[in-house]
Amino acid sequence: MIVKVNNLVKRYNELLALDHFNLEVKKGEIFGLLGPNGSGKSTSINCILSLLKYDKGEIQVFGKPMSPDAYDIKKDIGVVMQEVAVFEELTVYENINYFCGLYIEDKDRRKALVEEAIEFVALKDFRKFYPKKLSGGLLRRLNIACGIAHKPKLIILDEPTVAVDPQSRNNILTGIKKLNEQGATVIYTTHYMEEAEQLCDRIAIIDKGKTVALGTKEELKGMIKIGEKITVEVFNLVPEALEELRKLPTVDKAEYRENILVVRSKKGKDSLVKILEFMNSHDIKFGKMYSELPTLNDVFLEITGKELRD
């Protein structure tokens, strides 16, 4: 077990930010912490890193208790904080080099690592730039480079892709996959379910400081009652037809609003064909039709009764 968190409780004055939070991250996996704003992702990360005091609970990293002066643990961790954490007075290169140098004393090796990190986040053309001159997205990439240059065994990234354009985001995600393939264990927090689905081997969905669901994305989707979601553009659906549709055996819910029909299938049932048949037999005209498998948002919705993102 790379990280093990047991019954972690953290309060900010009255506010209960982590409520008996548990976590187990296995060696070699990319572990996702998925939760809405304010659910406690950053708080849990900062507790794991021994930056924050907490009220209760145990935290182990690499099988040893984590503490602020556990330098033998710290040397193998790389952190990318949620907020950009770099020195305004240092250039891109100097920033990466400084942080890397706090881990790697050997100059030649460090130089190679810094170059690799610059390559990794594609900041080659900006190495002499000061952070102030970088756009938000580039700054984020610098932030990432500073955290991973020293090739840590455990990489913790707290929403590293906020405000990054889709292309760089994809680059970053593939980059993280690559680091993982090279042997790093990754903890990745995000409130983008797409990212979590795309990247993570296992995902913990957290809300109000608690893990509400845990598993692979397939397992998570398997936990909920609903299945496929079918959206159809329909122009002349009479209420009687809608009622009839709702009675189809595979259909869980059906809503019709502003020429859009949304049908939720029951779990594991395939209703697409049934609906097509229904439309044809009732002579209902329809335009576009598409089907989506349930997302993690649906999982979150079903468990907590609210959307992952507003």
Binding site: L51, D72, V84, A85
Partner: peptide, 20 residues
């Protein structure tokens, strides 16, 4: 400010390094 994690973000990062 540059070494106290609650005073700046960069300090939080510095605090994560294995340096006393």
């Amino acid at each position: 400010t540059d070494i106290q994690a609650d005073l700046s973000k960069r300090a939080a990062r510095v605090n994560m390094a294995p340096v006393h």
